[in-house]
Design a protein around this nucleic acid. Structure first.
Length: 367
DNA sequence: AAGCCGGGGAT
DNA sequence: ATCCCAGGCTT
């Protein structure tokens, strides 16, 4: 049996913990604080702190309260989430905000159980909210805590396995103190993020190294066990970069579920042939121009995006199921877009501006 | 229990 | 190129 880790973690965190994260601010009402912690916790799911911070700042400026978020259109929320990934988080957050507005009088529940009934809030996120806002002794188990506990107690196996996760939850509950829970929760996450890192851990400065079982065995790198690797399938999709005679580009809204759910996207086709067929039916007379393909990696597959660019002088067909709406590039870039599509449209915008600058330069030369 | 869901940082 | 990150939902 090992000693409790909480006292050492609390002492360590006082000096070395992170105390200036944007969602740690203590000013405002309890509900306002809980709202900020909630949004941060959702953004931080499978996303690193440094990535989240700018998104969090912009999100809070746009949606400063639960009610502001609930009253906003989903499109605005997705636009502010664009580039963060896991867009179900944004849809669930928005749905949950409306539930809080309509069924909880605009106040976030203060207990773990009712929080867990809201979409997007699981056990760990609910625990994080009540621990950080109210100091309730509820255990969290995120990636940092899993790593610290797996090493300290030398728990073998991949945490994705149910049995391993169950052990880690038990340990997390045992280590969570009855007081100073907010500080403890932050401390164990800070240790995992800055000292007990996945690779090259700083065991020399770790406050738990004295009785860390993985460290004692010289096997820190073996914990937690790695996910069994599987090879990812490769996919290839053709995307129509279709302009009309007004210089606007066609975008379609994707289905609410599945990959890039609810986001705006270029019309997507399984191959060039089907895309060209559709373009021909749309009134394209010339040939479509292939643009440079984009490689994009997901957790579970790789995607090659093949853009096919065309200009329609006089659209002759009424909109079909594959058709969408026309947007200027400026307007398009303000929508919720998948990251690679945003990248593609941004490069098109840069090209346009360079062409314009070139034209101005030429004009100036001749004039 | 296993698969799905993004994008980026670190190595 | 590979792994994984302040996980949760669906099947």
């Amino acid at each position: 049996m090992t000693a409790a880790i909480a006292p050492r973690l609390l002492r360590w965190a006082k000096r070395h913990g992170r105390h200036d994260l944007p969602w740690q601010r203590r000013s405002g009402s309890r509900n306002r604080i809980a709202y900020r912690v909630w949004v941060a916790e959702i953004m931080l799911q499978q996303t690193q702190v440094a990535t989240v911070i700018p998104y969090f700042q912009r999100f809070m400026r746009a949606f400063p309260s639960v009610r502001a978020l609930a009253d906003a259109p989903l499109d605005d929320v997705l636009a502010h989430w664009s580039g963060l990934g896991y867009y179900a988080r944004a849809r669930n957050l928005h749905r949950a905000a409306r539930l809080v507005r309509d069924e909880h009088r605009g106040r976030l529940p203060t207990q773990r159980a009712p929080l867990e009934t809201l979409p997007g809030i699981g056990r760990s996120t609910a625990a994080a909210i009540v621990a950080q806002t109210d100091g309730q002794p509820e255990a969290i188990l995120d990636g940092n805590v899993k790593r610290v506990l797996a090493r300290y107690h030398a728990v073998p196996g991949w945490p994705g396995e149910t049995a391993v996760a169950r052990q880690l939850w038990t340990l997390a509950e045992q280590e969570t103190p009855q007081r100073d829970v907010a500080a403890y929760t932050q401390a164990i996450m800070d240790l995992g993020a800055t000292v007990c890192t996945r690779r090259r851990p700083g065991c020399e400065t770790c406050p738990l190294a004295g009785d860390c079982q993985a460290y004692a065995a010289g096997r820190v790198g073996d914990y937690p066990g790695a996910r069994p690797q599987r090879q990812k399938p490769q996919r290839r999709r053709v995307f129509a970069v279709l302009w009309n005679n007004a210089g606007k580009i066609m975008l379609t809204r994707r289905a609410p579920t599945g990959i890039w759910g609810g986001l705006w996207c270029l019309p997507e086709w399984p191959d060039e042939a089907s895309c060209r067929d559709w373009l021909a039916g749309y009134g394209l007379t010339g040939t479509a121009e292939p643009l440079a393909p984009i490689e994009h990696a997901f957790t579970h597959f790789r995607l090659q995006l093949v853009p096919l660019q065309a200009v329609i002088r006089r659209p002759r067909r009424v909109a079909d199921a594959a058709s969408g709406d026309w947007y200027s590039l400026d307007a398009a870039l303000r929508l919720g877009l998948p990251a690679p599509i945003r990248s593609l449209l941004a490069s098109l915008q840069t090209q346009q501006q360079e062409n314009q600058d070139g034209a101005h330069g030429a004009l100036r030369k001749t004039g």
